[in-house]
Design a protein around this nucleic acid. Sequence first.
RNA 1: GGAGAGGUGGCCGAGUGGUUGAUGGCGCCGGUCUUGAAAACCGGAGUACCGCAAGGUACCGCAGGUUCGAAUCCUGCCCUCUCCGCCA
Length: 429
Amino acid sequence: MLDLRFVVENRDRVVEMLGRRGLSVDAILAAGDPWALDAERRSVLQKVEQLRHRQRLAGEEIARRGKAGQDASELKADMKGVAEEVKALDGRLQDAEARLGQLMLVLPNLPDPSVPVGPDASANQEVRRVGEPPQLGFTPKAHWDIGTRLGILDFDRAAKISGARFAVYFGAGARLERALIQFMLDLHTKERGYREVIPPYLVTAETLLGTGQLPKFEADLFKTRAGEKDLYLIPTAEVPLTALHRDEILEAADLPRRYVAFTPCFRSEAGSYGKDVRGLIRQHQFHKVELVKLTTPETSLAELDSMVADAEEVLKRLGLPYRVVVLCTGDMGFWSAKTYDIEVWLPGQALYREISSCSSCTDYQARRSSIRYRPAPKEKPRYVHTLNGSGLAVGRTLIAILENGQQADGSVVVPSALRPYMDGLERIV
RNA sequence: GGAGAGGUGGCCGAGUGGUUGAUGGCGCCGGUCUUGAAAACCGGAGUACCGCAAGGUACCGCAGGUUCGAAUCCUGCCCUCUCCGCCA
């Protein structure tokens, strides 16, 4: 969430920055007036604290008289009234704080000044293009045709088992998925300085509140229920990885922290009916190798750049053409301050499709999750910046390999970087 | 699923309802001593919020309650651990 103090003291600026994201003042105020609520909160808080101070002094006096054998019944009677007053005011205070807290949870992050302003994806800006789309010399097929024909992907049987938006991988398909995972993890851990993590795939509501998926985006999640306990399937490893250091104060020397995790991801894809219904593009369950960093505010944008480079390196080594796009204010995620998407070329659709999204969330998640660091001994703790990025989405990488490596005879060439992970297999036939 | 134990400051561990944000120990930081180090001794050290400031308030798993006053009493919840059962 945003820094309440900053919001209160910089009303115009906050309104302007949120406006860039398409959030009008009216829309903000419709959810509640943070400025009025904060004023209420402060004034009540001061009264409560004054009364509590009186209670404390009176308590000491009563104890003293008790020891000295003096009467304190009149003072006690007075303080009973004070206690009731405190209780009433405290109720008002808690009410104001609760409403303010809920309001702050539904305000998105402020965009970084460098982010282009725009209403939707059409205003995103291409940063660079790497690699050339392959000259296939025949009409390229979509991956679902390629994979089905090779017998390595099976959507019909997946539908039988689990319904729409699932896939079964067979043989070389399953092997290719596993090879990609291994390849990506090796790259990030051995060459890029990330520490490998296997986190829980089921998380609590508090965890999702900390990263921002809750309370606003519950419809996108799969929720499980076991007895009285509600747990959510992770939509991305960003959630458990970012939450690793919740309620902690890290040492400056520990930053940046770089984590990489391979996990399945689960998304309900509510509201995406009719979109990407075929193939592996949009599934309820998919694999992702996720990168997460905790950094100081000063280094976060540089670390974002290097994270993008880490994700790009996967594509470079696989020989897949791609471009990097900086998302405009209107297309960014709720908790992001700046996002780069990496889009891979898909010959089957003849367009670039998102295969990675790398964001700096500045201190937005850190504040919600209370992840801080101490800049120097004795100094006050500050919030870290949290960054996350796909490195990469495994299923979509497999799509790109099938579509870019497809041959006229229907076979698929395995990128040489992956062959060591597939017993030297050069071609899927 | 059944039975039991426990959650206090970075860690360990005290705490009779009343100057207890909390004894003590370890670890940590500074100092004295020492050629240096160790030991010993002295001192320091949590987080958040309110306030221009002085200063104040809150926090002993969480939330309520009793009371003039709660780490301490009561209720509910959460978590951890042990044993039994079941199980990959």
